[in-house]
Design a protein around this nucleic acid. Structure first.
Lengths: 157, 157
DNA sequence: GTTATTGCAAAGGCTTTGCACACTT
DNA sequence: AAGTGTGCAAAGCCTTTGCAATAAC
């Protein structure tokens, strides 16, 4: 039972550093900058985007360091990974309410979706099927309002 | 407006061949065997599994041919691709009712989920947010009944 | 001083692409 | 005959891993 969701909303860098140490990890400049990149990103970012961001201040950071740090943060449950099928994973700092993503398959935009849209379904899965869904992060594909208007729903081929 | 879902349920190989031709594609033994592999698979298969299956009768088939054929079939909308985050895509012949997948993150089992579990949510997304979801295929992650029992919900780290 | 972490480089897995030859139409 | 489809090989992309040097504890 994973237990409660912590509110990291007002967390400071020093708090994150302490969490790292308490989890038995070391606090390095690279890690702090990766964390900062995640926290200042307005949403989901790829590992490559994090690396690019960090390199503006710290040019030598390697992608492998980013991936390894993301691994640590995922295990600490302060970062969530979502896979929207674009080939690369997207990562997000989990300081927000549980929420989900509406991915437009035409323009690749991603909007957030409030958790309550999935709650009913989740309850039914558990009650009727015995399946305990992990609804922390969910991606729903389709067409956003604009792309429906544009008629860019091409009958390809 | 993709339009209605055709019932391919009782389709025969010759029907598929005709569809290919009508879509301007050529009917080759490789394609027919790939199609057969997809149709006889009891669920979702990876490109590699299709290749292995086809090679039992036709050893020279290349993975690139499988991928290219899957592309054709996807555009003809007789095959659906789902991404369950395992790194490789899974493909499925779309001769069934729209349905979804419950993916157990502990034992990697995949059960099907009837469409009606998602219908309500889909309607709300459209009505309240203007987002037209594509609910043809959906993957929901979580723990199946057995893995909840086993307590293999490890607090990793 | 110990131990974890980094950067570099290389490998890994899945998928895509270029090209000449073969096959379907 | 015309044109698509195939196999082969190579490349592409994201991600992971091995290793010696480095930095945090």
């Amino acid at each position: 039972m994973g237990g409660g969701r912590v509110d990291w909303g007002s967390m400071q860098d020093s708090d994150v550093a302490m969490m790292l140490r308490r989890a038995g990890h070391k606090v390095t400049p690279q890690r702090m900058m990766i964390i900062r990149a995640l926290r200042t990103a307005r949403g989901h970012v790829t590992a490559g985007q994090i690396a690019d961001d960090v390199r503006r201040h710290f040019p030598a950071v390697d992608l492998s360091t980013v991936y390894r740090t993301l691994d640590v943060l995922k295990r600490m449950r302060v970062v969530t990974a979502i896979d929207v099928g674009t080939g690369d994973s997207m990562f997000e700092w989990s300081d927000k309410e549980p929420h989900h993503h509406l991915v437009c398959t035409s323009c690749d935009s991603i909007e957030n979706l409030d958790h309550h849209y999935l709650e009913d379904m989740g309850a039914r899965l558990k009650a009727e099927l015995g399946f305990e869904p992990n609804l922390d992060h969910f991606a729903i594909f389709g067409l956003c309002r604009e792309c429906q208007m544009d008629g860019c729903n091409g009958h390809e081929a």
